[in-house]
């Protein structure tokens, strides 16, 4: 099945499915609504538990407002639900703790993740947030593959990795911005140290 044919439905764009399956309605933070089948929802542990806890009937799904997922935008959520629909009914892999994880990226997933890096990272966050184990695996594998065969210098460019010095400077700047009083206390302490006294003890 191609990415374009994946059965995620934008309510305002496509018709409501005729099958008598249960379709849940979800709303992204930019107010886009999606209908997702019950079987596809099972790929997401978070959403599955959520809909189970809510105990919706098919009437409730139609009458009550869509379930809002306020942390994820429509673009990312569409990718997530496309993935879930394509992989619905598949077994959820169990993490055996082995490193490195051996994951093959299927063709559909590779096409689905042929997106810009910003969106890819959002997809990873969403997969982790919604607890979709296999989507998290393939998306992390994709990011890991981007670094394959790179030297440390090249990695810094690919991932915008901060060096230790930059990390320290950023931490210091953040601390200073957060608490100006702490800086004053530190300066005072440094001054006393320079004078030779140790008034704290």
């Amino acid at each position: 099945m191609s990415v374009e044919n994946a059965p995620v439905v934008d309510v305002d764009e496509a018709a409501i499915p005729v099958e008598k399956k249960m379709y849940y309605r979800f709303e992204s933070n930019d107010k886009k609504e999606f209908r997702v089948s019950e079987l596809a929802i099972q790929q997401s542990e978070t959403l599955n538990r959520l809909v189970e806890a809510m105990g919706y009937t098919s009437e409730d799904v139609e009458n009550k407002p869509a379930i809002a997922i306020e942390n994820i935008d429509g673009k990312t959520l569409k990718l997530v639900f496309q993935w879930c629909e394509h992989h619905k009914g598949e077994a959820i892999p169990v993490d055996d703790g082995s490193v490195p994880k051996i994951v093959e990226i299927p063709e559909f997933d590779a096409k689905l993740m042929d997106i810009d890096n910003g969106l890819l990272f959002k997809l990873i966050w969403a997969a982790d947030y919604l607890n979709i184990v296999q989507l998290l695996n393939v998306s992390c594998k994709k990011v890991a593959n981007m670094a394959q065969g790179k030297t440390p210098a090249q990695l810094r460019r690919v991932y915008l990795l901060p060096s230790d010095e930059e990390d320290e400077a950023a931490k210091r700047a953040a601390q200073e911005a957060q608490d100006p009083r702490a800086r004053e206390v530190e300066e005072e302490f440094e001054e006393r140290k320079r004078q030779g006294g140790n008034s704290f003890f």
């Binding site: 490195p100 994951v103 695996n137 670094a147 394959q148 440390p152 990695l155 810094r156 901060p162």
Partner: peptide
């Protein structure tokens, strides 16, 4: 966890 040994080796030299 998904990176190969060469990537992990490069990464541990970054910071």
């Amino acid at each position: 966890k998904h990176a190969d040994i060469r990537t992990r080796h490069s990464l541990r030299q970054c910071s």
